[in-house]
Write a protein that binds this DNA or RNA. Structure first.
Lengths: 204, 204, 204, 204
DNA sequence: ACAAGCGGGACTACCCGTTGTT
DNA sequence: AACAACGGGTAGTCCCGCTTGT
């Protein structure tokens, strides 16, 4: 095996993410991360110039994975049906399906985690988070708009806000599921979000 | 008021809460809190045996205030109308009204904050948070059930989950509003939650 | 004894100065200082917010002591004779007398020490050093000018440069005395500086 | 020149010397040196067994260059005149000429620098420094003695001390010139040293 | 000859909490 | 009730130098 640091770097990031989701960023020491992966400070600071740079690397990776989930669900929903309203509902159902699978490892959203310690991070980090949220909102909003164009909703609503509600429900569900120790809570909440859309676009 | 320590204790707790909502608990040092209120260690450890005890005092105070908000909105909604469905919708509207007033200083939920650093706190603290969430859920669930008894909903739903969705939307909205720097987001999301209830119990 | 930190602070500074003159600033760890005085990190960072602040405190104290030496020698020389040329020569002789006493503890100039690690310090520190040098130069230069007015020198010279030479000789002598392990070198060099002045203002 | 390591070695040493003159030896990390020359640890430890060995190599190189300056000035002064007093004065004038050329990059003496962090180096390093100082002193002292033999000085002086004064003035001038940001200071101080010699050997 | 990965330890800075004093 | 001094430990950062690979 050619001495490849990428593996070690990934190892560190995986351990870091898991710990951060449980203890928060400030509550997760570099030592604690390294103990998990049996490495030393030397290795850590070879890969990351500072703990802040680790944070940067982590949200960037998380944002990429998050976007992949969004894109996959969007693309599948568009392949499976042509009706804009059905597409939207199916999209949420696909997310719900994924959420039902989330039990182990302990779930959590790095975006939310970092937001709750906002002052610890620089503008770069917050930029990535904001971009992540805005990307979901923009993509979902476009599908809501398409559905509205296809069938007028029962109530007058802003597509942007309807889209934002998806993110809000997901983030809120994460918190509740952890506190109430109820892993299925997220999926059930997504079902209610789908209910809302169904009622909004349903026959009068 | 006699020169007693209650004042100082409150001063410390206020400063602590504000800082914790911005930096997280682990990211907020006792020294940082004390610098804000121009006090020294002696004062702090006179009022709190440890930093953990401060956390305990903070969520207890927060939970009490949170419950007051819930109780007030419930009571007012019950005074203003007799119809169970209207009561429920009015209840959400009253919360929305309050949310619209929240602009400065920037709000946040201590429950969510502590949940994101879960491993830092003992079972006592988590008990208070869980009780807080469950209390909302129980009270709101009861009103949803009453509404369902009064008028069958368009879709078959669990009252508990409908109630939980309120909390989820609120917590999620807090995160989004902070990241997107949009103070009015919470109120708009509550409006959508009310929309959902309205559609659920609306005429077919 | 009332819990007085001034004593501890002085203790730390004394140990720090001694070590810095031997190892340089970067080469002197806070731990090494504290070991000397049997204190812990807690004590150190209670008195100094950073190692840099210690540096600041050290040169300020050193500059004050340095100025006291200058002032004392000047005042004594002015009390002992009226002739401007004699005053100048006597002034140097008084310094020479003091230098001869410098054997233990190991001598050295904090100004020079810090200059040799210039980039480690901020502008405040360098300001104090520069002010120290300029103060000597200004005071001595004034006496040289008075001597020149009283008796024209054999060679045309700038009083500022003649004054600067005193500082240069002293600083250079410190370096040599350390490398050559010759404690009396400084006094002998001051004698040569006095020779120069004597010849400059001597009878043709 | 074939692509050999001598070039890299010199590159490292040049960067190291420049940094050390600004930050001191302890304040200059191997990494900082390597960043300057865009190399990595592998290169450094290929050429030097340790950081201490770099120090050794640096003063040896510096001492050689220093001696070359001395020899050159001595030889030129001896070629240009036969009178021992004139030779001595001319020798200082030649140094002054060289000093006047020193403006950019800002100079410094590695001997003095290392002396201010004396305890960091082993006896080998100090031996080289001491030898450097003693060599100047011996050579200059011999010329002073020759001048004294040729023309008795106005004051009774030790040739060794007169010779040492040259080094002292130079070293002191370096410190002052850096603190006062006056590149021409060294040349002016050499002029005063020459004045001293001139007066010492001048006609009564 | 040089690059990269990494170990192990030292550094400054800061943490929480205790003690003595007023 | 509150302050200043301080202990003891840990945090993040950087250090030097060794090893492995090209």
């Amino acid at each position: 095996m050619p001495r490849d640091g990428t593996e070690t770097r990934t190892l560190i990031m995986d351990a870091a993410q898991e710990l951060i989701l449980q203890h928060g960023f400030a509550g997760t020491s570099v030592d604690a991360i390294l103990e998990r992966v049996s490495l030393t400070k030397g290795a850590f600071f070879h890969h990351f110039r500072s703990k802040g740079e680790l944070a940067q690397a982590l949200i960037e990776r998380f944002a990429a994975a998050d976007e992949a989930v969004l894109r996959s669900a969007l693309e599948r929903s568009e392949r499976l049906t042509r009706d804009p309203v059905q597409r939207l509902l199916l999209f949420v159902s696909l997310l719900e399906e994924q959420a039902a699978a989330l039990i182990e490892p302990y779930p959590g959203c790095l975006f939310a985690s970092f937001c709750h310690e906002a002052q610890l991070f620089d503008e770069d980090v917050h930029g990535v988070i904001r971009a992540g949220f805005e990307h979901w909102q923009a993509e979902v909003s476009a599908r809501v708009r398409a559905a509205m164009a296809h069938r007028p909703p029962r109530l007058e609503v802003s597509p942007d806000d309807v889209a934002a509600m998806l993110t809000a429900v997901v983030e809120g569900a994460f918190i509740l599921s952890r506190s109430l120790n109820d892993a299925a809570l997220l999926a059930r909440q997504l079902r209610h979000y789908r209910n809302y859309l169904e009622l909004l676009f349903g026959d009068p």
